[in-house]
Amino acid sequence: MIICLTSANDSGGEPDSSRLDRCLLGIAGEDSRALAELYDCTSASVYAFALSILKNTQDAEDVLHDCYLQIYAAASRYQSFGKPMAWILTITRNLCLLKLRERSRTADIPPENWEPYLETCESASPDDRLVITECMKLLTDEERQIVVLHAVAGFKHRETAKLLELPLSTVLSKYNRAIKKLKNHIGKEY
């Protein structure tokens, strides 16, 4: 029996912090290659987190775009070495909350339209689409954010708790419940 098929066990999708710190320093010096590298390493986490809050692919895409412009503008002020991912996702979260407020004013944007885009997204396989759909349908907003932060951004539960301003115990129990739900559904369909 082969244990643990993939590299899933080495600290998840977390890109290594010192590499991100280097990128941010480069961006502060207006090096566009550093920005490109940062985008490559972190866009999945930013997009997934934004989508998990906004549940709307168009809005998530906007946030993804604006997030990197903000990073570009603010990189020279970035100081907290060692926690680049937390910094980036805090920016993401703030942009998402702005977006939600904006949306509540306009109210003409349908709140949950993640499906049409997914169907046209060529880079995602049918399986991928199914996984995302299940994440969207099965989980509550909080559960979804917690799962995405851990599984995609590689956050420790402690870090998730801090970012979402929730008690650690809540994060842990919600995570376990959420992953159990997903496991049952995703597992069955394979």
Binding site: S43, A44, D128, V152
Partner: peptide, 12 residues
């Protein structure tokens, strides 16, 4: 989950 979201990111 990671795989799915990674593949679904729009290329901006």
């Amino acid at each position: 989950i990671r795989q799915a979201f990674t593949n679904a990111v729009p290329d901006l």
